[in-house]
């Protein structure tokens, strides 16, 4: 039950994109097509979960015993950067089309604050190992959910008659704002 609460909370109530406003760059950058948005979402979910697992290990097994907790940010960034490199190589090898579609946003997962945020928040909340995994996975799925919803809306917007001052980034940001507003509705779901 406790895991479910953590999961739902990371997925909906404290959605990393729409409540914490983390990871906005890929959220706006890769959300023009549902396909690439979904791939981006899964890539982020994968890196997020893996990064949270490894950084949990490094924090609790290396940093805490040696009383080096102050190194958490530096070491987490190192971990995330390495993992993104791995994921990038893997995607480049297995699917060049996906590699092209994600483009610059793939290496930019490195600086995606949502991923560092998950790793840091898991430590801050003192989660145990399984809790960290559930938390990171939920947060990743929450990111995927948000970016796919955004992509779906933006695909529809392509065919809509938008007043010219709102075209392009304008309508995108308005859409993101309205999405964030709707997600506020989840805030009373779990006390």
């Amino acid at each position: 039950m406790e895991y479910l609460v953590i999961f739902i909370s990371a997925l909906l109530i404290n959605n990393f994109v729409l409540s914490y406003f983390l990871g906005i760059c890929p959220f706006v950058g890769v959300s023009n097509k549902i396909d690439s948005a979904l791939s981006m979402g899964f890539a982020v979910t994968f890196v997020m979960t893996l990064a949270a697992i490894v950084s949990w290990g490094v924090y609790n097994l290396v940093l805490v015993p040696y009383k080096l907790e102050f190194l958490e940010i530096v070491s987490f960034i190192l971990i995330i950067a390495s993992l993104v490199q791995l994921v990038e190589m893997f995607i480049r090898k297995t699917s060049p089309t996906l590699y092209q579609a994600l483009g610059i946003y793939l290496p930019l997962i490195t600086t995606n604050c949502a991923i560092l945020g998950v790793a840091l928040l898991a430590v801050l909340k003192g989660y145990a190992f399984v809790e960290t995994v559930v938390f990171a996975f939920g947060a990743g799925l929450g990111f995927t959910l948000a970016i796919v919803m955004m992509a779906g809306i933006r695909e529809e917007l392509d065919g809509a008659d938008i007043p010219s001052p709102f075209k392009g980034p304008g309508i995108t940001f308005i859409t993101a704002g309205i999405l964030a507003l709707t997600f506020m509705g989840f805030s009373g779901l779990i006390r």
Partner: peptide, 8 residues
């Protein structure tokens, strides 16, 4: 810290 970060 230097050793740990270096090792990681």
């Amino acid at each position: 810290s230097i050793l740990t970060m270096g090792a990681i």
